[in-house]
Design a protein around this nucleic acid. Structure first.
Lengths: 331, 331
DNA sequence: CTGAAAGCGCTTACAG
DNA sequence: CTGAAAGCGCTTACAG
């Protein structure tokens, strides 16, 4: 910058503090003009190094190509952008495939805040983050007894509603296909299923429970679901506890030439284009993705800006959308 | 660090240059031990400020919640991660909604490289990036006469193949539903459609062309498609030129109670769960997403590491997957 | 084999 | 109203 003016003044002006610091209008104008002409853009590391702020949020999801997390990421980016933040993301792949610690990578880059769908292996890092009082919010699931803020769905109620709906429509042998995991959202969905059966005076049968490991390939999951269904012809309804399981489940049913609705009732957790538009349309427990994302960003920004936090833990209501995959079995 | 040793030595050791610089094994061991105990993590801004490297790639897509871009983002993140890079992403939303310049935000944060699905408004910034010799690769589309590297599909051939397939199956009144845009991938798809008709001695009729603006809401798009189909009962086949248009198109057809396959043949660009698993399954031109992502990252890393670049422009082959939405009309 | 010093490009008290 | 100087936490010639 060839203007005869100190870097101090330039810094003040370019950060919009010219007026406040009583820099003369003339100098302000000159600096702004030149900065513009030279296409000057301040070095953000230098800035961050000095101020400690990065204006970057770290987002960790299972898999950004999954409908739920992709849409969540979109909302998060949009919201963050509204407040001048950008987002860096990592896929945890539920601890599969990657041995390295995703969260650590983001911690190294010093995010201003962290939005995390946690896996069990992240616990130590999450505790460290809490220890360092870094802004953080967990999404989709959380850890019991860990003092972290979070935004989740009332998963228990969601699953319970599914069972109620199945029973109301006359289904009697309701299976659940879920993941083998200690993650709390899945545990709660499972509890909701069990308690739903009990509430409706139906027996809980372990043979109607299929738990699938995360680290399988899609076709293996499809195979397992096919075998499970084949071996239990008594099943007249299935609750899939996730987007992904539901999609692969539909593939399994198609392979088995089992007709959804006609042969078997189906409800899935999470909505997506396939569930919405396939025929028959699939009844789902839909999550308020927009609200989850917006709340998460708001909580993070409140923490960053040290505003008072009104609600630390947000549990949103599930929404049962009834379509054609659960026709009445009463006669 | 309380070890009696200079920061210089610490820096050398922690960057793995201890041996090379002939630091004594004893000192190396001591430093590593203490770094470990103190959970020491070097400040990345300081590092970046000094070295000019961020180990961060910027990714700009239309919309990360879109199947194509979400899956692409996943691959990009995985590949980048393999080489120690993280990725920061922005949704361009095809210039809708956001007035600000997405690319500028990333440029401010000094990405080591840029992977961009460009929109027209980005052109000036892209030229600047080229000017500054920043590693960059365009994906999905590019600008004619701009000397940038890119990875795209042979969109022309893809559309041409669709028309060929329709004709082969006996369809005569093939409509195209595409976006109103100057983006080159869409232009090429349109050209492929036109030339496909000509090649097959079918007339090109402007009334069978529907171009839809990007900045519409989903339900508006659905409405427009519905009206278009209603007003042109002659149509016996439709080529949707994107994922998104295809999904909304299926919604329109459902609303109109038009049966895919029975009433009308359908092919969409891009594959997804809905097209794959709905019944009837939708025939698609699928893009090799994995290859696009891997190539893009490789090209960027080659540029960053100043390796010789073998291919600067990669045009991948489309893959026509024939399912049930294009049954034979010959009799 | 190891360390002192400079410097990356900013911002922020502080001085005048 | 404006500027000199210190310092954020690293790395990298350079010296010894």
């Amino acid at each position: 910058m060839k203007t005869k003016v100190s870097v101090t003044t330039v810094s003040i002006v370019l950060n919009g503090n010219g007026k406040e610091r009583k820099i003369s209008d003339e100098v302000i104008a000159k600096i702004e003009k030149e900065a513009d002409e030279l296409n000057y853009r301040p070095n953000q590391f230098a800035k961050s190094l000095r101020t400690g702020k990065t204006f970057t949020l770290g987002l960790i999801v299972d898999d950004i190509s999954n409908y739920f997390f992709g849409h969540l990421a979109k909302i998060v980016e949009e919201e963050a952008d509204n407040y001048g933040y950008t987002v860096m993301f990592c896929n945890s792949e539920n601890d599969n495939g990657k041995t390295k610690n995703v969260l650590h990578i983001l911690m190294d880059k010093q995010m201003d805040g962290y939005i995390i769908a946690p896996t069990s292996s992240m616990l130590p890092d999450i505790l460290q983050l809490i220890d360092e009082k870094k802004p953080m919010v967990l999404i989709d699931r959380f850890f019991k007894n860990v003092p972290a803020m979070y935004v989740t769905l009332d998963n228990y109620k969601g699953a319970l509603n599914c069972v109620d709906h199945f029973v109301e429509r006359g289904y009697k042998n309701i299976a659940i296909i879920t993941n083998e995991t200690e993650q709390i959202q899945m545990q709660e969905r499972f509890e909701g299923y069990k308690d739903g059966l009990e509430k409706n005076k139906l027996p809980f049968l372990t043979e109607l429970v299929k738990k699938i490991y995360f680290n399988l390939r899609d076709h293996e999951v499809v195979n397992q679901i096919e075998n499970f269904i084949k071996e239990h012809s008594v099943i007249d309804a299935i609750l899939f506890t996730s987007n992904n399981l539901g999609i692969l489940g539909l593939e399994s049913l198609r392979n088995l030439q089992k007709k959804v609705a006609t042969d078997i009732g189906v409800i899935c957790f999470d909505d997506n284009d396939l569930f919405r538009l396939s025929s028959p349309g699939i009844s789902v427990i839909s999550q308020p993705i927009k609200q989850i994302g917006k709340n998460a960003v708001r909580i993070i920004l409140d923490q960053i800006e040290k505003k008072e936090i009104h609600k630390k833990r947000i549990v949103l209501s599930p929404n049962l959308i009834i379509r054609d995959s659960t026709p009445s079995r009463n006669n």
